[in-house]
Simulated assay, not measured.
Amino acid sequence: MEKQVVGWREVVALPELGIIGIPAKIDTGARTSSLHAVNIDLFDRDGEEMARFDLDFGRGQAYRHCEAVRVAHRTITSSNGTAEERLIVKTVLSMGGHDFRAEFSLADRSDMVFPMLIGRTALKSRFLVNPGRSYLISNRDDAKEEFL
């Protein structure tokens, strides 16, 4: 199967969370994907540990309340070298016509340009990255205004 080529930034969706048009930075330097989340809380549903969190769209936009299956807690080292314990959740990622389950660490990305980072684990065996191009499988105009 031929791998699809993506740019260093793309517009993606998290259909299980009801979110479309989210701009994401494609980052082969990061192992784990990351999603900007606040008000993170764990709870139990029918014996399964779940995470409840809000996706903060910033600039006065309303929060989106989400729930996802908790996968793990992991120590994640950020780009500035700081290690922190983060909650990892798993949900469907929709990218370039492909839907697949991916793991995301929930983190405060309020000081970052992109609310989502897609790491190499999610990209592996599916995509090739052209770091000199943007929006090869998506259209920047598809990004929802609340994310821009």
Rank of each mutant, 00 (worst) to 15 (best):
M1Y: 06
K3H: 08
G7S: 11
G7M: 13
G7R: 09
W8N: 03
W8V: 14
R9M: 15
E10G: 00
E10L: 08
V11A: 03
V12N: 01
V12C: 05
V12R: 01
A13D: 10
I20H: 00
I20E: 10
G21K: 02
G21F: 04
G21C: 09
I22K: 03
A24D: 09
A24L: 12
A24I: 15
K25L: 07
D27G: 04
G29R: 02
R31S: 12
S34P: 01
L35R: 04
V38K: 15
N39Y: 13
D41M: 14
L42T: 11
L42M: 08
F43K: 03
F43H: 09
F43I: 03
D44R: 08
R45S: 14
R45Q: 13
E48F: 06
M50T: 00
A51W: 04
R52A: 15
F53V: 08
F53Y: 08
D54M: 13
L55G: 07
G58M: 14
G58W: 13
R59C: 06
R59Y: 08
G60W: 05
Y63Q: 10
Y63N: 13
R64V: 12
H65L: 15
H65K: 15
C66G: 04
C66D: 04
E67G: 03
A68P: 06
A68E: 12
V69K: 11
V71L: 11
A72N: 15
H73A: 10
H73V: 11
H73C: 11
T77R: 06
S78I: 05
G81C: 09
E84V: 14
E84L: 12
E85T: 09
R86F: 00
K90V: 02
T91F: 10
L93K: 03
S94H: 10
M95P: 01
G97K: 07
H98F: 10
H98V: 14
D99Q: 14
D99H: 13
E103N: 10
L106Y: 03
A107P: 05
D108M: 11
D108L: 10
D108R: 06
D108C: 10
R109G: 08
R109Q: 11
S110Y: 07
S110W: 07
D111P: 00
V113P: 07
V113Q: 09
V113F: 10
M116I: 11
I118R: 02
G119Y: 06
G119F: 04
T121I: 09
A122L: 07
A122Q: 04
K124R: 07
V129L: 10
V129I: 06
V129N: 02
V129W: 02
N130S: 07
G132R: 09
G132N: 11
Y135H: 12
I137W: 05
N139Q: 15
D141H: 04
D142W: 00
K144H: 13
E146A: 13
F147S: 03
L148V: 10
